[in-house]
Write a protein that binds this DNA or RNA. Sequence first.
RNA 1: GCGGAUGUGGUGAAAUUGGUAGACACGCCAGACUUAGGAUCUGGUGCCGAGAGGUGUGCGGGUUCGAGUCCCUCCAUCCGCACCA
Length: 934
Amino acid sequence: MEYDFRLIENKWRQKWAELGTYKVTEDPNKEKFYVLDMFPYPSGAGLHVGHPLGYIASDIYARYKRLQGFNVLHPMGYDSFGLPAEQYAIQTGQHPAITTEENIARYRTQLDKIGFCYDWSREVRTSSPEYYKWTQWIFKQLFNAWYNPMSNKAEHIDTLIAIFEKNGSSGIDSKILTGDIEKEVLPFTAEEWKNFDDKKKFDILMYFRLAYLGESFVNWCPALGTVLANDEIVNGVSERGGHPVERKRMKQWSMRITAYAQRLLDGLETIDWTESIKETQRNWIGRSEGASVRFPLIGHDKQIEVFTTRPDTIFGVSFVTLAPEHELVGTITTEEQRDEVQAYIQKTKARSERERQADVNTISGVFTGAFVKHPFTGKSIPVWTGDYVLVGYGTGAVMAVPAHDERDFKFAKHFGLDRTQVIIPTHDFNCDEAAWTEKEGTLMNSDFLNGLSVKEAVKKAIQEIEKAKVGSGKVNYRLRDAVFSRQRYWGEPFPVYYKDEVPYLVDDQHLPIELPEVDKYLPTEDGEPPLARAEKSAWNYAEGDRMEFNTMPGWAGSSWYFLRYMDPKNENEFVSKGKVDYWKNVDLYIGGSEHATGHLLYARFWTKFLFDQGYIPFEEPFQKMINQGMILGKSAIAFIDSEGKMHSYDLISDDLTSYRETRILIDYINDDESINLDALRNWQPQFEKMTYVTNSQGKVIVKREVDKMSKRWFNVVTPDDLCEKFGADTLRMYEMFLGPLEQSKPWDTKGITGVHGFLKKYWRLFHLNGNFEVNDAEPTKDALKTLHKTIKKLRDDLDRFSFNTGVSSFMICVNELTDQKCNNRHILEQLTILMAPYAPHITEEIWSKLGYAEGSLSDASYPIFNEAHLVESAYNYPVSFNGKMRFVLNLSLDLSIEQIQEQVMANPDTIKWLEGKTPKKFIIVPGKIINMVM
RNA sequence: GCGGAUGUGGUGAAAUUGGUAGACACGCCAGACUUAGGAUCUGGUGCCGAGAGGUGUGCGGGUUCGAGUCCCUCCAUCCGCACCA
């Protein structure tokens, strides 16, 4: 009887669906385990072999946990709002919902072929109104909340109002009262607060809300016609499409993620993620300790506030530099300097972020004509503006200490500015040539800091700054608030309407605000977002003068989806308390590392917020995370000369650049890297009449190059083809067999036959004489040994997420059992349970043939996954002396290390060999080797 | 520049706390069975050497009875951040 994987896999796919095998419900008698994949954006291109890699790993782990007896939540859904569907809509006029629906259907078909144990009854889609109703609801909670630095958590805005009513602005810690608000309205007394009109109160509260409408510098991408968050920009261009981005001051919805900067940092210590992702997040949050210092402007009643990490160098300040965008630049520039400064600002503005980043070595700047007073020496200090100071970091102003900061040094040198050395270097160092930037040395020229070490001076300087009331110690973060508006159609509408340009929230009972129909998916002629095209009647709710025309960014829906899986159909709550208390946070999260500063940060932020609000009992969404590597494609490149002839790659000895490179669909490449010319001729017209210069075997060889797997490189391998040819079980095991999950690697289909052959061999174990047959005799000692070795190895492998070595263990086991001609029921049954997570279809088939109820293998727990079960079988322990192997003892595997030691010492061979001496050290590696050091 | 990760045969890789390096698989070589083989099975396969033997985990040192594994220096590749004050 042949291993007919098509028949078997179709059969079980249907059975599982019929039996509802993978449906789970809350069960207080069982321990929960939550295994989650990062849900995909359903793109038009469908799945390639890289996509399921992580899904297979999580599926194996989820099944393993089920077999161990856990109640496993393992859901799947779609992150279905996004740009590609919208761009397709712009081109074709087809509603993005239709495209999305089609793509989801295709994804589902592809996913189903692989045999995942998802509970599909819990599917969520971020673009469905039933789902985004709750995204809108969470937005409302964020709008109605502020971050109370005294209690260190988010609270309802009412508690802030209560504070203002009682104590005015002095009721809250002064440290959070920075930025624009300070200048406009602060401070105010309780009495003044009560007398403010509603508009003014509203405006003040807007400075505190966690979701707020505010004017700030944002990344505007003209080509995409929308603003972007910092994580959506890579090297100064948009992540999608690579379009230039410029900084623009705009009124936008933002999320006050900065309020959570410290907790986002601290939380990293409590979760089990790779060091590299944690480090990326730490980098992104960018905590630095220092001080903020105010320099009073001479001739104005204003002051310039700077942030510095080196308050110890305060006596070395020789000028102050403002970012060109700094709002004081216009105010303080003197008449004589005005033209020059204006020209400089214009020049800076004209340069894109990318250009500005590209030439960081060019020094530019202009003197503003203004001076500030040094807070301690009272000396006049010139104020410059220069684009090496970034408006988005700190206060957008720096105190320049050329002697001890490299950029300040270059700037000073370039413009011939003064330089005051205030630190004596610890070793020979030429302070005329470079800045001494080490945080070591002794202070000089620094009044009360003289003689102190840098470390002491930092402390002392902050004390003195605070004493003189010219500033304070401060922690600064690189993290910026996240822009939350997008000028796009295909996203969540805001639950917001405007009356007299004041935003109001829509009542809960009117949620969701559904996406209205529009005639075109483009911005309006006067630059309003696409939603401005909608007639008032097209909205399912309309109030005030107009609705909010922006939509939410892609990360809105994905910041809380893992909660919705727990209670996907709940119409009254985003998730019920009972369900979230049972399932809690995700125990194992598998997905790519590319979301380090996007999704993974935002999801942590929202989770902390919902925790503060008392809706959920945990602060970190994803306890353990594994980042699967990317599967790359091997493109096939052919070379065409200037006459249009294609040359075999092995014939080309001259310069490759004189040839035109063409990528060939990899389906047409044979195992020996030659092109299937007949297929190629039929592929594209250009190849039909082409002349081919073949090698001595009459073949045209291609060059292989590793690229991202993508349609445009013609190097895509789909899981569908492989399922068709080898079956899902083979595909699952092969993807795991490829290597460590975390590593990126090029896809190579060649090795798949090895895994396929293994499954056939496993199948044959049960069909020694052509028919299904197992014997019920006592298992042999050898077979037991093989089995128990495999159990132990496999459990160890799974517990440390080493899925590749797990496959190898099975291969070794099956090879050994084949050699032993073992067809013992007990042994094969146990092996089948072990293999079930990896190869669910074939094992279910065998299981039912062994006489068990259909589907019971996937839906029960088995003791071999819980107890070691390593009994009566024995291991050969080589016993060695100082590294040289001396003899072999046969010892039972279930002995403790102490028992092994006892038995070895009691063994006649040992006694004879030791001749009365006692070993100094006794090294036992369980299952491997015993070593005695004399 | 700062931070993170990786480096083992022709290839993907294993070696879990330091304990027989290269398991397992691909590929390759030889053979068996076959009309045939992209089927199945058997044997071989790190490198040098006919052999005994020597040698071997990016380079160079160190600790140890023993190092792919621990420590130090350097090199290479990949990723993240980067005028962050």
